[in-house]
Design a binder for these strands. Sequence first.
DNA 1: CCAAAAGTGTTACCTATACACCCATGA
DNA 2: TCATGGGTGTATAGGTAACACTTTTGG
Lengths: 237, 237
Amino acid sequence: MFPTYANVSERMAAPPALAISTVIFALRPSAVSGRPTLWLPLVKRIREPFEGMWALPGGPMTQAESLQDAAARNLRETTGLAPAYLEQLYAFGGLHRSPSERVVSIVYWALVQPTEAAMAQESANVKWVRADATGPLAFDHNEIVEYALWRLRNKMTYGSIAYHFLGEKFTLAAVREVYEAVLNRSVDPANFRRQLMTAPQIEATDEYLQGGKHRPPRLYRYTGVEAGGPPGFHQLS
Amino acid sequence: MFPTYANVSERMAAPPALAISTVIFALRPSAVSGRPTLWLPLVKRIREPFEGMWALPGGPMTQAESLQDAAARNLRETTGLAPAYLEQLYAFGGLHRSPSERVVSIVYWALVQPTEAAMAQESANVKWVRADATGPLAFDHNEIVEYALWRLRNKMTYGSIAYHFLGEKFTLAAVREVYEAVLNRSVDPANFRRQLMTAPQIEATDEYLQGGKHRPPRLYRYTGVEAGGPPGFHQLS
DNA sequence: CCAAAAGTGTTACCTATACACCCATGA
DNA sequence: TCATGGGTGTATAGGTAACACTTTTGG
């Protein structure tokens, strides 16, 4: 099963195991308040260590994929969705993350647009939970989720990733609800609207969202690109 | 030398090689203008691939060290200096970064305070170059340096890492010169001074820097901590 | 006294924020 | 018509940038 080494020094020089994990965020209306809240999927561990506990989706790194591709595949297999946003979070490599062997995990975080069908794709081994109430997780995954939340909030405050939670067309109120859900505070609708209007990447359509109880709001479109990385580095591999 | 595998599928499942590299920034007065500029150390490759070319300091990952420790050791061995600032940059894992085998590199970036002695620690296999003129490097190291520069500038604009380039006590003009060197533009001394003064982490001493040609400037001290990570995550492993 | 950097004062402008107000629609 | 969210107007405060000005030292 494992490669054998001729002597001790070769064994010491062997690389740690390498794994990929993903923190996948989606926005879903709360059952109680109806307002959107942050959710993420977990998978149940079916072997030791931490057998039976919930953990972030992930798996061992293979030779044939780039890091980004491995993370995207991981996301697809877990949620059935294509990533609207995918970015590297951090490489975790502490000595005692896993009790059995040394594992270095490269963690990605993603935003997906929750289709009704895909969210229902739960099973005995996959469940979605609120991001702020995951319960105890395997390995150091609680820390990882906390850090991912911090990065998400940080990017949200000045950045334009909010749109990746939404579909092609959206109301400005929907964008505001994304902000409120992620930052966990209320935002003045009037000022928020003006801030978005000054951004050249927001384009008004001539459509209105019908079917609401009140005045139909105008729909807008996001025309920016912003891949999951710093500007000028279109595909960091 | 290399472990052998029983069949093809096991070989495919073998992990990629794992390496650590560091981008080490130091500020040194330019030979021509006298103003401080950004420099970094390179090492000459003594084996294939890219034998004879210059590359970032680095080496294979070992079982016994955390990622942070491995990077710190790497830095010490190359510069002889302790890191004033050390933070993970990115994990690079493209399929064709190395022509021979698949390598995933976890790259750290560091700031050091250049002592005269340490900067002189050059040899046939180690040289310091200006960060904006490294020449062609081995592997994808040119991209990595570019990305590290982008992160450095980004953190500098709002953050407090500038002090890690300096000693314990410094003049406000010295801080300004750090900004100007990194951001590559001039900064208004009057406004810059006021911005720093409002920051509570800057503490005035009652000492003045003597020996200059003009009015002796007051010395200040930095009392913040800011480890190399996001707030609340004191030691991401 | 002069040059030059240290350090202070003043003003214009821009943006975040608070909040009053009108508009359009379903019920 | 009323309730409610969509959308506009406006006054205020705080921060940034530009730049004139005073202070203090070495030569």
